[in-house]
Design a protein around this nucleic acid. Structure first.
Lengths: 221, 221
DNA sequence: CTCAAGATGTCACATTTGTTACAATCAATT
DNA sequence: AATTGATTGTAACAAATGTGACATCTTGAG
């Protein structure tokens, strides 16, 4: 079940021989965990890169009294906490536990840096991964910066529409609700309102924008 | 008014001679803009790193009909859009305009990569910058992931308290309101509720936590 | 084509949060 | 110690969003 190394995002675009060559010139460990075992504890110093090559894990935050707060599942292939290896705060903000049998490749920071030197593509991949994550977070945060749900939806719709009047929604209302951080019927309600105000025509995933200007206007309130 | 190169985050920890040596071995441009002029347009391809070395600029998004949506001010020394040079989506998401007279150093991606090769500290600084940004965004987003304002405040308070029972708030209610993405009186209202429920004692910035368990409990709802 | 599972439209009602406003208190400077 | 500007406490009311429920429609598997 172990994924091939060329599928690991960090080694994307590299030939198998190239990766094997690279891996033979640095030190790293392979670690295996059984389902249910603790992989890293919240607060532990993050001085190594963990690449999940097999299995599924879950990250959760624990409050001072030991209650778990927030959960995020991750599946191979995945790099864990790449932002915490180099950032100012280099402690894991979450505990990570194996959900299934899980395998990791573990690189110390120095060895990772050495790989960057030896192979510019690996560096480029790492930069791309971490940048994409920042972009993803940034985009998600943008939605929260709008004042009302109507503004969020309006912004989303103008973005999805691009220059077209008619288009199909990529996401379900459920997914949009999650993206906007609201309940599902609230999204539906906004669509209903926009319909009644004659700004869009929506029937399931088929959207026609009837008044582009008004829609853009709504982004501001 | 131009800041010294050793103050630029990208060159932090480097000696002046070291930076000058480095800069002499790569190609880069210095660009100056007068107040009010457009520096980059939204949607423009981001293939270069912009380091603001003097002045103040503003980033704003424009909707399809040309209304400006969101504003973020930036002051020297500052690196612009570092996440967009390497991420998947490498177009500027905002337009940037000079607020005052502004100076930049401009590096093409290849030259930046060359500097990474020549000087590991520069690479390390860049990784740190971009990682810290991801961390910052992540932290900010965490607050939005709580269901209610009460949960956000409870989480914030447990974090600020650490292991102490009595402490002083670092932020004003205004700042907290901004962090949580709500109106200022809403924050005050929650404090009032927590007070009435005998969970905390708060008088202006002086907080005493009277029931740690209940506070932790609240983080979950 | 049929059917079941999932997605959507929509409602009534409960909660939460925003808005506006003003008085009380603090903090810093004189 | 007094004054002033910023912060905080608090209220009433308006508006937005959550909740739960249900009927209806779409879509994809068979």
């Amino acid at each position: 079940m172990e994924i091939p190394v060329t599928n690991i995002p960090l080694f994307k675009g590299c030939a198998l021989a190239e990766v094997e060559d690279l891996l033979s010139s640095v030190v790293f460990q392979r670690k295996k965990f059984t389902a249910g075992s603790l992989i890293v504890s919240q607060g532990e110093v993050c001085d190594r890169l963990l690449i999940l090559t097999e299995g599924k894990v879950v990250g959760e935050m624990t409050s001072p009294t030991g209650k778990s707060l927030k959960i995020e599942e991750m599946e191979a292939p995945m790099v864990l906490a790449s932002a915490f290896l180099f950032g100012k705060q280099n402690k894991f903000p979450v505990s990570v536990t194996a959900l299934t049998h899980a395998s990791f490749m573990v690189f110390q920071r120095n060895d990772l840096m050495k790989m960057f030197r030896l192979n510019p593509r690996v560096l480029s991949n790492f930069l791309s991964m971490i940048s994409s994550r920042a972009q993803f977070l940034s985009e998600k945060l943008r939605f929260h910066s709008f004042k009302s749900l109507k503004a969020k939806v309006a912004f989303y719709l103008t973005g999805e529409a691009g220059t077209q009047k008619k288009f199909k929604l990529k996401h379900s209302q459920e997914e949009m609700a999650e993206l906007f951080g609201v309940a599902r019927p609230s999204v539906g309600r906004i669509f209903l309102q926009l319909q009644n105000e004659n700004i869009i025509d929506i029937r399931y995933k088929n959207v026609t924008i009837k008044n582009f200007d008004k829609l853009a206007e709504l982004c501001n309130h």
